[in-house]
Nucleic acid binder design. Structure first.
Lengths: 355, 355
DNA sequence: CGAAGCGCTGAAAACGTTTGCAGATGGAGC
DNA sequence: GCTCCATCTGCAAACGTTTTCAGCGCTTCG
């Protein structure tokens, strides 16, 4: 009985060949279901392989073929819900298609550079790379193109590579417009990043915020815009600062639900109520948004991960078969929509004042 | 200016050798900082390598050495906060130590088997494997041992392998005792799993729940124990069921914070208050626990990930240098503690009744 | 009956490293 | 001057696959 599941030593294709009384070439062909091997032979090989519990050494394959059957995923902030959700969804698709998934955390622009040049392009670790919310600079784009890297992106569109995006600018505008329509005029923004920031998404959402305000004849005021680091804590701190303003905002648009959660907590800790005193709208539709009754912009997170993974798989298939048309990048823009829950309410008419 | 960062074609060790006018063997040695290469030579090689932007092909290295410089992480439910936090923490350590991180989602027992035998043991993809919350059966243990696999585990202790754990049973007992001390007697459990379940952790927490009740002379009642799938939704459903009982519980211990969040939502949707009507205590100290004011058991999630990763790195170093004592497994048990917030309160004396 | 074609198989050359072994060089000790 | 040793270097054999090319035996067709 132990014979059926005993693992034994790793065996080589050579041993399988001997046992099946064929050459290694034939074993290789038989196991990969190539044509041109007689049915009887294939069966003998399969039996021998089974008996020896043979598994081809992926490193040898990779060396011989130049293909790795692995794809890399570059992700800023692995701990954030959005990213782990995307990775989880992509993972399922990739494993299913027989690819290994290598994870690469990209916290800083330098990391990103290292990742792209050393790891992805020069280091032959993966057949393709999925970039989540990373904005590439022209040099990096060129490097990747020169290396004929297979790239898919989520969050940003880079025209030479397939992408899955949402219209962050329009979606943010929808969120802010919702607040404006409720009568709010002093609307803060949490998540704004000043200066060079290696991500595009926050910039787009910022633009949407400005757009919506402008429609109502309002110019965005810098003191109402706060960085939040896209974490709960950062949202909390940003909101705390906003509450200390002489004229605190009556509504807040947060670029991520997690920062919104922190903001809500800060508001409550301050003795104020959501939405009666301050309205809050987030972005993501985080799984906790329902629990928190958070009004937010839903974006299809899992679906994005799945789609880009699937796209990557087809791209690689096209590359393998030399199908040029299959290699053309495809860009998909998925829909978002506003989910109104209970953290937003009409402007009461009462303005808060400090000092 | 483009010359400094141009990536160019991947170059082989052969070309570096020619440029530096030495043999490939010397290049190999020089780049790996082996002794026995003259300083002048090493410099020539470094310059040549730099100039050609050379990076060794990892697959060729792996084939030649049998080492992969990669470690695999097996994780059930990639999307759950706990797991992504652990992965994130481990990732940082591993990348830093020069290892690649391969992710492997293990949703079912079959997955786990496939992972262990085919992927980790027979497939030479990784030098070591970190198992998060996976319980191995004796066969799998034996397979891994036979293959001399380097294994580290989080959540469960398997004596032949290094581990980082917490005392789930004792910690759960602390949580339930907290409720008992507040006067609660009808205490429900969310997260209980019936039948064969491939994870140990829930079983331990279940035992702790039973332990604490027994100390107070209470026998755990099956109808108060509900599975919750360790997700928000599951917690919501479980709580909804509990609320429909003729005599609903006055307090709930949830095996994870996420299920606790769902439970709280269910209680509120039912028109009841937390903690006035029902107390809730969770497990994890999820980053949202603070926002939700959830009383919970804090466990050192990031620290666990870091520690097991570090342990893996030292184990592999020991294996490489043939240091037998360094290979001995080390088991670390980290402390948990109860964080009392505001979802627990003394039993009011009023029992809820349905029907 | 010979040539051509087809289906199957095997020999051997890649793929790009690492490493055991031996050789070359030069200095120290006698 | 010779031996010995230490230091450095190169040759060539691995590592375990894939893939090209040629060859073999049969059938088919002219």
């Amino acid at each position: 009985m132990s014979s059926t599941r005993s693992i034994g030593q790793a065996s080589t294709i050579e041993e399988v060949a001997q046992l099946a009384k064929v050459s290694v070439a034939t074993v290789s062909r038989a196991l990969r279901n190539l044509p041109n091997v007689a049915e009887g032979t294939r069966k003998r090989v399969l039996i021998a392989a089974e008996q020896l519990n043979y598994r081809p050494d992926p490193n040898a394959s990779r060396l011989a073929t130049g293909r790795t059957q692995a794809i890399g995923m570059a992700v800023p902030m692995l701990g954030r819900w959005y990213f782990s959700a995307v990775v989880g969804a992509a993972h399922a698709v990739l494993i299913d298609a027989g690819y290994d998934l290598l994870l690469f955390g990209v916290a800083t622009p330098e990391d990103r550079g290292r990742f792209i040049t050393e790891w992805a392009v020069l280091g032959k670790r993966v057949d393709g790379v999925i970039l989540v919310d990373l904005k590439l600079d022209p040099n990096e784009l060129e490097d990747l193109a020169l290396a004929e890297a297979r790239v898919g992106t989520i969050g940003n569109m880079h025209s030479p590579f397939s992408s899955v995006t949402v219209d962050n600018r329009a979606a943010a505008a929808v969120a802010v417009r919702h607040l404006l329509n409720l009568g709010h005029r002093e609307i803060a923004l949490i998540g704004h990043q000043q200066g060079d920031w290696p991500f595009q998404v926050p910039n787009d959402r910022h633009d949407g915020y400005v757009d919506a305000l402008r429609e109502f004849g309002i110019t965005a005021r810098p003191e109402l815009q706060r960085a939040g680091g896209f974490e709960i804590e950062g949202g909390y701190d940003a909101m705390t600062d906003l509450l200390a303003l002489p004229n605190p905002p009556t509504a807040v648009f947060s670029m991520s639900d997690e920062m919104a959660f922190g903001a809500i907590k800060a508001i409550r800790d301050h003795g104020l109520r959501v939405p009666e005193d301050i309205s809050v709208v987030g972005f993501d539709d985080h799984e906790m948004a329902k629990v928190m009754d958070l009004t937010t912009i839903r974006q299809p997170v899992q679906e994005s991960g799945e789609l880009i993974a699937r796209q990557m798989v087809t791209t690689l298939k096209a590359a393998a078969t030399g199908d040029a048309v299959g290699l053309a990048p495809v860009h998909r823009q998925l829909r978002t929509h506003l989910v109104v829950r209970r953290t937003t309410a009409p402007f009461s008419g009462a303005r808060l004042r400090n000092g």
